[in-house]
Design a protein around this nucleic acid. Sequence first.
DNA 1: CGTCGGCTTGAGGGAAATCAAACGATGTGG
DNA 2: CCACATCGTTTGATTTCCCTCAAGCCGACG
Lengths: 245, 245
Amino acid sequence: MPQTEFPLHRPELYEELCDGERMVVRAMAEQTRVVAPREPVFRTGESHDHVYRVQSGWVARSRNVGEGRQQILAVFLPGDIFGVECMLLARQPEAIEALSVASVNHVDAGQLRRLAASDPAVALRLMFQLGEDERRLHNWVIGLARGDAEARIAAMLLDFWRRLRHRGLVTDDSFTLPMTQQQIGDYTGLTVVHVNRVLRRLREAQLATVRHGSAALHDIQGLRAMSRELLDIYENDAPNETAEA
Amino acid sequence: MPQTEFPLHRPELYEELCDGERMVVRAMAEQTRVVAPREPVFRTGESHDHVYRVQSGWVARSRNVGEGRQQILAVFLPGDIFGVECMLLARQPEAIEALSVASVNHVDAGQLRRLAASDPAVALRLMFQLGEDERRLHNWVIGLARGDAEARIAAMLLDFWRRLRHRGLVTDDSFTLPMTQQQIGDYTGLTVVHVNRVLRRLREAQLATVRHGSAALHDIQGLRAMSRELLDIYENDAPNETAEA
DNA sequence: CGTCGGCTTGAGGGAAATCAAACGATGTGG
DNA sequence: CCACATCGTTTGATTTCCCTCAAGCCGACG
């Protein structure tokens, strides 16, 4: 069922979306970079004019905020396209860093813009990525505004798991999670100390085990219950998940 | 200085962006709706297939979360385009409601998609709106994750003021703010009670007065200091603002 | 005049931050 | 093989910010 690759799309766009995906992949095929953990793909303020796509590994978009603290705004998994904004916006306050060893493909922004102008499927694929990112940010705003620490972390784990599954990168309930507890805190807006306590509680409650850079979700339903308020309609009645759990 | 209309764009795109804007406005010119405060433009889950543009008034994107509570995810001001996601994503967990009396233009999504496919300037204008929304969401995520109540409210007031100014809808330091304290809380992730206390503190500190549906920012620099960590690079050295303050 | 929505203020409690310190792996050099 | 430094994790004690609960106030409106 290839449809799972773009889970939220309008069905009638599927063909065109795949066309666009192929075109983007082809345009990016020539240039690849491999980055080590904590190594930036590009830095804050750096004039970057490339659009990227994750080939393997995990990558984060983060912004420095005050003394040595950072906020992780998004985590990109294999298949995600990022940096589309640079085609439009002049300045970029965010940095992109690898979480694990990661390889990314990229293409010149101007070149991609011309491609998008000549091929609507490419423009559609890019817009789709922006739309999907926006929805994920909406969910995250709600998590930060309304969820407590447990709900946020449960929602984070479920989000990663779901996305990896949609791409066929995970089949059971466990996956590698290349983030330190500090980075989890930077993402969820919590301190390391508190992240640690919550992870212990999740472990003790037999809900999930996060350790040594890997996560195992023992009780999907329990985690979903814990983060229920934060999940949007689509996520709350995803059919093939309840079957799995 | 028409450039201020799209504050963050890449300069070389200005012409095309304006072309796109004109095309979108023209395509939407035929259909207008006027909505009263609290009246939905469309509801959660409603299959909507139109893209909108605010002509006048304030409009909010919100999502219901649990018992009678709602989270406001974004506030749209005159000139903003919203609902672009419906061209791409099948389901929409958010509702759109008017905050003040508002008039919105709209156009059928399929029609707009064909227009975007035939005219790259239209696609660019739409992508620009998505990019700008995304940046604002990034800022807001940081605000919720890192900022305390005062920083969030200061950032909110500055954001509205800045956006209204860029569109020439405000010349001095005051503007109408058609939101109740409850709605401000729904936006900033705070309770009414706490919003009220913070607004009192801002008033007592001669920073800003929010009352009777209007806001007056007495000390822009003070407000910016209060929310400094939450503002992105661009916002922290906007030249013509320091001059104004 | 009573009611209703929105604003204001007070008192108490709880979730998470802060401060502080120890523990366990891993690696490095003597 | 043993200091020893480093990085990430773990745990405890205290403090702070904000929520909850509760009640009073004000203007608008029937």
